[in-house]
Amino acid sequence: MSDTRYANLLIDTADRLAEARNGNESWEAIQAVAKRIGATAVNAGGVITLPNSAGLRTGTHPAWMRSSMEDTWLEEYQNAELYRHDPVLRSALRGLPPPSYYDVRAAHSLERTEPQLAPLHDGLLRHDYRFVLAHMWYEKNLGKCIVLGCSTDPRDLFGPGTERAFSTISAMLAMRLQPPDDGVGEASAFGIDWLMPNPQEFDVLCYLARGLNEAEVAERLEISLTEVRRRVRNVAHKMGAETPDQTLALALSRGLLPL
């Protein structure tokens, strides 16, 4: 891939992403760029490292996901719980770099040691997602993963410079990736089960996000401290969090609260 062609690709990608004014427009731009460089579909998601009750960072939690893959495949992927064995998702949730290049047909050899991969591989091939490229981008405790599904080997697209092009473009896409503007999207898909806070719980979260403590929130909302803590416990349960800090971190990473 010539330096000029590579530079033009980067400039065009930057221009297309810069036109996006919100999260959903960014998602549309990401899909357009992915299509231009040979992908037939895009998966994207956020994973967050959360503090435990002692304030230590322990493990990662899914924040949200989006996908432009075919609905029939997403339904199969969800219903059969194939996400439990997806090597890309599994790596991301462990805080590890996902495989940057995954040849689904060649990966059939892995089924001898991991037979649970067979339904995943079969489904990907049936829907013509024969090759998968993945990139992870970290911003503090939030990791953003971009996964491109391709029907033909993407290494043939741009010659020797293809790997460099995909790495750079994927990083650019991940930097602009945002959770769905409505805070939901496909957020409850692929094993990520959480409920939206109700208006009363949302009020408490908003004040906590501004830096107020629970007593100050109680005073501001003119409710008891016990009621504030009850609302925090309720929304923590809904969102799959263990502590108030985790609850707030998940709410922010999922785009539920204004920054």
Results as ranks from 00 to 15, higher is better:
Y77T: 01
L93K: 05
I192C: 09
L252T: 08
M1S: 08
K140E: 13
H108K: 08
D128W: 03
S26N: 14
Q246E: 15
L250D: 08
T162M: 10
L259E: 10
Q246H: 07
A92L: 03
V88E: 00
R210E: 10
V147N: 07
N79A: 11
D103T: 01
D245H: 13
H121A: 02
H61V: 12
T226D: 00
A7Y: 02
S2T: 08
E76A: 13
I48Y: 04
S109P: 08
T13H: 04
P179H: 12
N79E: 15
R16Q: 14
D193I: 08
R36Q: 11
D122S: 07
T40W: 02
L250Y: 01
S151N: 00
D156Q: 09
N198R: 14
V228W: 00
G45H: 02
V147P: 10
S109D: 12
E111N: 09
G211V: 04
A218F: 07
L205Q: 08
S26A: 15
I11A: 13
R229V: 04
F131M: 04
P115S: 11
D86N: 09
I48D: 09
M69H: 13
L173V: 13
G149V: 02
F166N: 00
V232R: 06
A171S: 15
I48V: 12
L133I: 08
I169V: 15
A34W: 01
L110N: 05
E214G: 00
R220E: 09
Y6F: 15
K144L: 14
Q78P: 00
D15Q: 13
A134V: 14
M65V: 11
